[in-house]
Simulated assay, not measured.
Amino acid sequence: MPMADLFPHAPQYALVHSARGALLDYCATLRPADLLAPVPAFNHSSMRDLLVHVARTYQYWLGQVGLQRPGPLPYPPDAPDLAALRGLFAAVDALVDEFGAHVAGRWLEEAPYALPPAGRPLPLTPLQLFTHVITHEFHHKGQVLSMSRQLGYTPIDTDVIRT
């Protein structure tokens, strides 16, 4: 069965993936030290820290909550460079595919999802989980670009529709 049948939102995630690719390609043009540099206006977090946070959010909401699969979540030291960040997002891509296959045909069915570690159930649909992680990513993508501007770079267009 084609992935679009299992995961009708696969074309939408392809757009997210493309926008993320533009951001990561832009990050490859930055000095590696600047990717890790704390930015005071962002609570002394770095661009790398925010990107790891994005990957961690996918792993928490889709992996731990959506698939009920416990496991370690990444932390910034787990991604010392852009290659490691790309690896984290390759794992995110695989997780999105797995989640899509798991919820195939049930995107709008509300179910009580247990939130680790306490296990408190929250009524959600798979579509809500998926929408949450992709909108969260775009929120932080904008922050990463703003951080780069504060470090003296001129950000590029990383929107889904790039001109």
Rank of each mutant, 00 (worst) to 15 (best):
L6R: 14
L6W: 13
H9D: 12
H9I: 00
Q12G: 05
Y13D: 06
L15Y: 10
V16Y: 14
Y26D: 01
Y26R: 00
C27Y: 03
T29S: 06
L30S: 04
P32C: 04
D34G: 03
D34M: 05
A41Y: 02
A41S: 04
F42V: 02
N43G: 08
H44T: 13
V54S: 01
T57C: 13
T57N: 13
Y58E: 15
Y58P: 04
W61N: 12
L62H: 04
L62K: 01
G63M: 00
G66V: 09
R69P: 00
P70W: 11
P70Q: 14
A84C: 08
L88A: 02
A90H: 09
A91Y: 04
A91H: 01
V92M: 07
G100F: 08
L108G: 15
E110F: 02
Y113G: 07
Y113P: 07
A118Q: 15
P121L: 07
Q128N: 09
L129E: 12
L129G: 08
F130P: 08
F130W: 15
F130S: 11
T131C: 15
V133M: 01
T135Q: 14
H136W: 14
E137K: 09
H139C: 04
H139W: 13
Q143A: 08
M147S: 05
S148D: 05
L151Q: 12
T154G: 06
T158L: 06
D159K: 02
V160S: 08
V160K: 06
I161V: 13
